[in-house]
Amino acid sequence: MQNTLVDKTFRDSNGNIVLAQMPNLPLIVWIVTSLLSLIVTTGEINTVLDVVANGSLFTWAWLELFQGVNYFRRALGLAVLIGIIASKIISYNGLTN
């Protein structure tokens, strides 16, 4: 098997093309807490759910960035990290203006 940029981008170490995988624990926690925060929309419980959701999504993105099976998965982790940081900056600026 040739080691081209396309192979490094989309194939794992076994040669399989990997774009999506079964969700791991941080992603499952993010999904569950995000859905729960849509049900519980106010109060301290909502704040805790928001913090846990953001923390677990950050953890997932960090793991993908540094341990992703291919360049695509690592780029996905980087994009999510940038998205998390940008959304927090935008929401913080919205609160202070």
Rank of each mutant, 00 (worst) to 15 (best):
1 M>N: 10
1 M>V: 09
3 N>K: 08
3 N>L: 10
3 N>C: 02
4 T>E: 02
5 L>F: 15
6 V>L: 12
7 D>A: 11
9 T>P: 01
9 T>H: 08
11 R>W: 03
11 R>V: 00
12 D>A: 05
12 D>V: 05
15 G>R: 09
17 I>V: 14
19 L>K: 12
19 L>E: 01
19 L>T: 10
20 A>N: 08
21 Q>C: 06
21 Q>H: 06
22 M>S: 14
24 N>A: 13
26 P>H: 04
32 V>R: 02
32 V>Q: 00
33 T>D: 01
34 S>R: 07
34 S>A: 07
38 L>G: 15
40 V>S: 00
40 V>H: 02
41 T>Y: 02
41 T>I: 14
42 T>N: 11
43 G>N: 08
46 N>E: 10
48 V>W: 14
50 D>L: 10
51 V>R: 10
52 V>T: 01
53 A>T: 07
53 A>Y: 02
54 N>Q: 09
54 N>F: 13
54 N>P: 00
54 N>I: 06
56 S>V: 07
58 F>L: 15
58 F>M: 13
59 T>E: 00
65 L>S: 15
65 L>M: 14
66 F>W: 12
67 Q>E: 08
68 G>M: 04
68 G>A: 05
69 V>E: 05
72 F>T: 03
75 A>R: 09
75 A>V: 03
76 L>R: 07
77 G>A: 05
78 L>V: 13
78 L>I: 11
79 A>D: 08
80 V>C: 05
81 L>K: 02
85 I>C: 11
87 S>M: 05
89 I>C: 04
89 I>T: 05
90 I>R: 09
91 S>V: 10
91 S>T: 15
92 Y>W: 12
93 N>P: 01
93 N>R: 09
